[in-house]
Amino acid sequence: MLSQDVTAKSAAGAPMVPADAGDPILPLELLELELSLEGFSGGEPGFCEAVRSAASAVNGDFLFDLPATGLIPDCRRLAVIRIPEGDTMGTLFAALDEDGAEIRLLQPDEETEHLVRFADAFIDLLQRLPEQPREAA
């Protein structure tokens, strides 16, 4: 189950608000992603598949996941995903809590800037690789 209060705030806890409004915003893609993760049944083995499916449901991309103990508080694994934000793709994190029971979405902030740079370098590398022909099934 996704932690509802985290999505409406950045990872640092600051509300995500537009400059001219007082109400927190929740972009449609983020809401759809959150709803897709609602059915998470828990456990580390199903984490990647749950996040991959949720990202796909919003026309996003699952980039990679990694062990995250010590990187982010109360986080066992961290998945990096990209979701549509208007005409571009934005980076977002899906964090599996230490108990392996819930996935929470985190917006990049100062504490995770190094992970965003790593994700950007990963994407750059993938774009530079020559496209391999797909084998017929």
Rank of each mutant, 00 (worst) to 15 (best):
V17M: 09
P73V: 02
A136R: 11
V51R: 08
A121R: 10
P27W: 03
E135K: 13
G43P: 14
V58S: 08
G42T: 09
H114C: 10
L30V: 06
P27H: 06
G39Q: 09
V80C: 14
I72C: 11
F93I: 09
L35V: 10
L71W: 03
R117K: 10
G43V: 06
I83R: 06
A21F: 00
T112G: 09
A79P: 06
D74F: 04
G70T: 10
A19M: 12
A94Q: 01
A94K: 02
M89P: 00
A54G: 01
L63E: 07
R76E: 11
L105Y: 14
I123E: 14
G100T: 06
R77K: 15
V80S: 14
G60M: 07
A57P: 05
F122E: 15
D23K: 10
E110T: 14
R82H: 05
M16Y: 00
I103P: 08
F47N: 05
A8M: 02
I81V: 15
L129G: 01
L106M: 14
E29N: 11
L106K: 08
L33E: 08
E49W: 14
P84T: 09
D65V: 00
F62R: 10
T112P: 06
F93R: 14
A50S: 15
F118L: 14
Q127Y: 12
L2H: 03
L63C: 03
E85C: 07
P133V: 13
Q4G: 01
T88N: 05
P27N: 05
C48E: 12
R117S: 11
L63W: 06
I25C: 00
P84M: 08
L63H: 07
A11G: 15
P108Q: 05
L129S: 00
C48K: 15
R117Y: 14
F47R: 08
Q132C: 11
L92D: 01
L66V: 13
A54C: 02
D5Q: 05
E110S: 15
D109T: 06
C75N: 07
P15T: 02
A11W: 04
L105S: 05
E44C: 01
A101E: 11
F40K: 13
G60E: 06
Q127V: 04
A101H: 01
T91K: 01
D124T: 10
M16W: 07
D120F: 01
F64T: 04
D20Y: 01
C75W: 07
P130V: 09
G43K: 15
E44K: 12
A57G: 03
L129K: 07
H114D: 12
P130N: 11
S36N: 04
L78D: 14
P27C: 03
E49G: 02
L71Y: 01
P67Y: 08
G60S: 06
M1H: 07
D99F: 00
S53H: 12
L2Y: 11
V58Q: 01
D99Q: 12
D65P: 02
L37D: 05
E29A: 11
L63P: 02
S10A: 13
L35E: 15
A119F: 00
E38K: 11
P15Q: 03
I25F: 02
G100Q: 05
